[in-house]
């Protein structure tokens, strides 16, 4: 029983983080068909912002809000300076641009900040543990679960109940038709990048909270996680991304508990092989997205 609870908390907290990471990637992919390699760097930006405002003496929540805001701004900014000018050219050109931009941001951090880890301010709760029914678990796991529940709820409400959300879902299936009804393309695209930045910023703070420091490559693992989760769940389905995140967390946690130390090292190889197999079996992922989409 204790073990079951432990396992559940592990899967839910990891899965919550994974689901948010995947959602932030897939919201942009769904609308622009752009696999954004620079997504992980939004997490990095949030981390370094937190580091830079660390000495300001502001309340922590304000600092965290500033960090999330910077991630949002960076998301919209990358779209304007890098993706928009190449979007009409080819899918491959946009992909390479996003890969180049990812490298650009990481190396800018190396160059202007430091290759060494930097400490970020965190509230005391992040390092405390709590006992629930005999299971000792870090408080930050519970914070992650709570944040995931709230964000997923807000996100679902936004996409189902607001005009903007419905317009975004429409644009994901048929961008041109949505524009012919008067939905401005720029608003939709910038909103997608803003939501992507918001999710990356919040999940970034939670992610960095596990280790307490930020390095230039901090976004690499979340990016990989988001890739796997979206591929498992369905690259064009928002629900699929969430499902994929939790499924991946379940697989990872199970492997953590069952694989021997020797084999555990190959965990990424196992999960990525799984990705390849799933794509072969169902190139669209487990959940099919809306009917064929068009690029602008």
């Amino acid at each position: 029983m204790t073990f079951a609870l432990q396992f559940l908390i592990d899967v839910l907290s990891l899965g919550g983080a994974y689901a948010l990471m995947a959602l932030g990637l897939v919201i942009v992919y769904g609308i622009l068909k752009l696999v954004n390699f620079a997504y992980g760097e939004l997490i990095m930006v949030a981390g370094y912002t937190l580091f830079l405002v660390g000495g300001s003496g502001l309340p922590w929540l304000v600092m965290a809000a500033v960090a999330v805001l910077m991630a949002i701004v960076t998301g919209i900014f990358t779209d304007y300076v890098a993706f928009r000018p190449v979007r009409a050219k080819s899918v491959t050109a946009v992909l390479i641009t996003s890969f180049a931009f990812s490298t650009l941001l990481q190396n800018a951090a190396l160059l202007f900040i430091s290759p060494r880890p930097r400490n970020v301010p965190l509230p005391a709760a992040f390092s405390q543990t709590v006992e629930i029914a005999g299971v000792i678990t870090p408080v930050r796991n519970l914070i992650t679960i709570a944040a995931a529940v709230v964000l997923l709820g807000v996100f679902a409400f936004l996409m189902r109940r607001t005009v903007l959300g419905i317009a975004m879902r429409a644009a994901a299936t048929n961008f041109t038709m949505a524009r012919m009804l008067g939905v401005p393309a720029n608003l939709i695209i910038s909103s997608a990048f803003a939501i992507s930045g918001l999710l990356a910023g919040i999940v970034g703070i939670l992610w960095i909270g596990r280790i307490g420091t930020v390095v230039p490559g901090i976004g690499n693992e979340p990016l990989l996680v988001a890739f796997i989760a979206t591929v498992i769940g369905g690259m064009r389905s928002l629900g699929g991304a969430v499902l994929g995140g939790f499924l991946l967390a379940f697989i990872d946690t199970t492997l953590n508990y069952t694989l021997s130390q020797e084999l555990l090292k190959f965990r990424d190889a196992f999960t990525f092989s799984l990705v390849i197999l799933i794509l072969l079996w169902r190139p669209e992922g487990l959940l099919k997205g809306p009917a064929t989409g068009q690029r602008t």
């Binding site: 000018p85 180049a100 931009f101």
Partner: peptide
């Protein structure tokens, strides 16, 4: 460190644009 990569990345993006 990182100047070379920053410059190459900028050059790549410029070429693609």
């Amino acid at each position: 460190i990182g100047v070379t990569e920053v410059v190459l990345a900028l050059a790549m993006i410029a070429i693609l644009i």
